[in-house]
Computed example of a mutant assay.
Amino acid sequence: MKFFITLFVCFSVSCVMAQEQVSYFFESNKFVLQKEELSKLNKWLTVNKEIKVIGVYGFCDEEGSVGYNDTLARKRIDYVFGIIKNRVKIREDFKTINFGEQHTSSAIKAENRKVTLYFIQPKDFVNEEKIIAKKKEVVVEKIRPKVKFSDVYVFENPDGSTLNIKIDTVFMKKVSLANVGEKLKLESMNFFVDTFAIMPQSRSVMFELLTVMKSCPDLKIQIQGHICCVQKDIRDLSTQRAKAIYKFLEFNGIDKSRMTFIGFGSSKPLFPLPEKTEEEREANRRVEIEIVAN
């Protein structure tokens, strides 16, 4: 299956001294500036009415997945651009660019949670084209090997016996085609109450994941556990449940370098706690995999 990786349009600077920049900083996991930073931005706009903005870059710290940070950086860009767009000149072919966590970062996390404006002064407008060397968008095509999945697989047990498992090829195709940063829920992944023991009816889900991992040798994942109902995961069940799936894959031949596991407790609920219905509790009580590499 063909897919495309787009490298964002960027601006290289021929005359570094002619381009200036200013940054505004965000709280962790927020894309709206706090009062003090917003005040700084508004004051800067008041003083610099005649400048021209040529780029808005968004950054995040390393906390969270690459996909999550990429989305957060985009939201920060959109927020700041919404404030400046009618108050200063902006280059017509201006492009918003975000770097997520993929940039040279500071050891101080707070310094990485920012949006940076790049701009030029009125005196340099006449030399604008010399200052900015626009690089065209580059599209790199990568070929993923086509994977054909069967409805029934035969697995060999350690004692030499075989096990026929009917599995869901739809899920496996989704995993094989998912992009880096994408998360997929392991549907019907159930555990015995207050334990990390997997219920027998969930075995097919485990074998579906095992099959796609064997069929896609470049695939790397993070297994993420979540619980419902309580604010604190005192027994660390979310981690233990994610680990149980990790150990199953390892036992069946998947190299440890291709997978990690983590438990989030109830810190990332899909529905606010306390849940109102069993459907909400079931949605929060889940195991997901995040694509790390493919």
Results as ranks from 00 to 15, higher is better:
residue 224 Q to T: 02
residue 60 C to W: 09
residue 137 E to Q: 04
residue 81 F to M: 04
residue 280 E to H: 03
residue 171 F to L: 15
residue 9 V to N: 13
residue 128 E to N: 03
residue 290 E to M: 13
residue 159 D to S: 08
residue 270 L to I: 09
residue 23 S to T: 12
residue 173 K to N: 15
residue 117 L to R: 01
residue 176 S to C: 12
residue 17 M to R: 13
residue 7 L to Q: 15
residue 270 L to P: 00
residue 103 H to R: 04
residue 35 K to T: 06
residue 28 S to M: 07
residue 210 L to D: 12
residue 190 N to K: 13
residue 8 F to H: 05
residue 233 D to N: 04
residue 76 R to M: 06
residue 75 K to A: 09
residue 127 N to T: 06
residue 61 D to I: 04
residue 133 A to E: 06
residue 75 K to I: 00
residue 128 E to R: 07
residue 43 K to G: 05
residue 8 F to K: 10
residue 25 F to T: 15
residue 128 E to T: 07
residue 238 S to P: 09
residue 113 R to Q: 10
residue 203 R to F: 15
residue 274 P to M: 08
residue 159 D to I: 09
residue 181 G to Y: 00
residue 122 P to K: 04
residue 186 L to A: 04
residue 148 K to M: 11
residue 135 K to G: 15
residue 220 K to W: 01
residue 35 K to M: 02
residue 110 A to T: 11
residue 127 N to L: 10
residue 272 P to N: 13
residue 263 G to S: 06
residue 164 N to F: 02
residue 110 A to K: 15
residue 27 E to W: 01
residue 117 L to F: 00
residue 257 S to M: 01
residue 279 E to T: 06
residue 262 I to N: 04
residue 265 G to D: 04
residue 137 E to G: 02
residue 209 L to W: 05
residue 180 V to K: 15
residue 18 A to I: 00
residue 69 N to Y: 08
residue 103 H to W: 05
residue 153 Y to E: 13
residue 244 A to S: 15
residue 95 K to R: 14
residue 77 I to C: 15
residue 99 F to I: 01
residue 133 A to V: 04
residue 55 G to K: 03
residue 160 G to M: 01
residue 52 K to T: 14
residue 91 R to H: 04
residue 102 Q to Y: 10
residue 163 L to G: 00
residue 2 K to N: 03
residue 49 K to R: 14
residue 43 K to L: 14
residue 253 G to N: 08
residue 3 F to S: 14
residue 9 V to F: 09
residue 181 G to F: 01
residue 67 G to N: 11
residue 202 S to H: 05
residue 49 K to Q: 14
residue 46 T to R: 07
residue 215 S to Y: 08
residue 171 F to I: 02
residue 202 S to F: 03
residue 213 M to R: 01
residue 103 H to P: 07
residue 27 E to S: 13
residue 90 I to E: 08
residue 28 S to N: 12
residue 43 K to Y: 12
residue 275 E to G: 06
